[in-house]
């Protein structure tokens, strides 16, 4: 099969013309987001150009230390993202989330690269892109799970207080909230698994096919990555919430928020 045609800069620049259509429609529809569109496009371009050069360098000079460092940066960035969306988490809860996301993400990644693909887990060409997908999706799932959990316990304060006054243990009060949030965090991944192949060809598979991989190989990677994503979302949200909810009350069974 033929590999992806290398794009010249001039050819590549042509794709930006499409943004003019978006700009035109935005102007016509009085959507005041033209500035955001420009900033978003510029940021995306700059960020990806940078990462493109960095990855090219790392792949050319594989070094376990750099791969590890890359993973550490990825993890801290995603943990930071999760925290920045929620200002209402206590310190212990945050530590639990950081540990859960790191361990779940890395464990699934190691299994994927080391056991399923059978490569050295410090091999940057496999580890880095797969880590990005696994950790990135775990981060999104965690954000949804935490949002659902924290918002529903705030909304249902009366229910929590009533059950507390009836002598129900905080564990029994909060467990249903934990389970609901876990379900909410898994739904987007499960939905895309349902539609996959029929409604859309997922990005990773498209990329591999363009790069010349046989579609049958590409689908195996795609299926594998989705199962890995689903597992890492499930594990990180499950661990974060199941250990985290215990930080919301004290030994006297009083809620401390």
């Amino acid at each position: 099969m033929e590999g992806a045609t290398t794009l010249s800069i001039a050819q590549f620049s042509l794709i930006y013309l499409l943004l003019l259509i978006v700009l035109f429609i935005m102007k016509r529809s009085k959507i005041d987001k033209t500035k955001l569109l420009i900033i978003a496009s510029v940021r995306m371009t700059v960020q990806l150009v940078l990462i493109g050069f960095i990855l090219q360098y790392i792949f050319a000079n594989p070094n376990p230390l750099i791969t590890t460092l890359f993973l550490a940066v990825m993890l801290s960035f995603s943990i930071h993202r999760v925290f920045s969306t929620r200002k209402d988490l206590n310190k212990k809860f945050k530590v639990i989330i950081a540990i859960s996301l790191s361990i779940s993400g890395l464990a699934v990644l190691m299994y994927f690269v080391g056991v399923v693909v059978g490569k050295n887990i410090f091999n940057p060409q496999y580890t880095i892109p797969l880590a990005g997908m696994i950790i990135g999706n775990a981060m999104t799932g965690l954000t949804i799970g935490l949002k659902t959990f924290m918002e529903s316990i705030k909304l249902q304060r009366r229910k929590i207080d009533t059950l507390t006054n009836l002598g129900v243990s905080p564990k029994n009060i909060l467990k249903p909230f934990v389970n609901n949030a876990l379900e909410a965090s898994l739904l987007p991944t499960l939905n895309s698994m349902l539609g996959m192949g029929i409604i859309f060809l997922p990005g990773m598979m498209t990329g591999q096919i363009l790069a010349g991989t046989l579609p049958t190989t590409a689908i195996m990677y795609q299926i594998a990555i989705y199962i890995a994503i689903c597992t890492s979302v499930c594990l990180s949200v499950f661990c974060s919430l199941n250990f985290g909810y215990r930080t919301l009350y004290n030994e006297k069974n009083q809620f401390i928020g």
Partner: peptide, 17 residues
């Protein structure tokens, strides 16, 4: 034990749920 206590001393709060 606070859980036993709350079963024994029941508080019907103003905020109904």
């Amino acid at each position: 034990d606070t859980l036993k206590l709350r079963k024994e001393v029941s508080l019907v709060a103003q905020e109904v749920f």
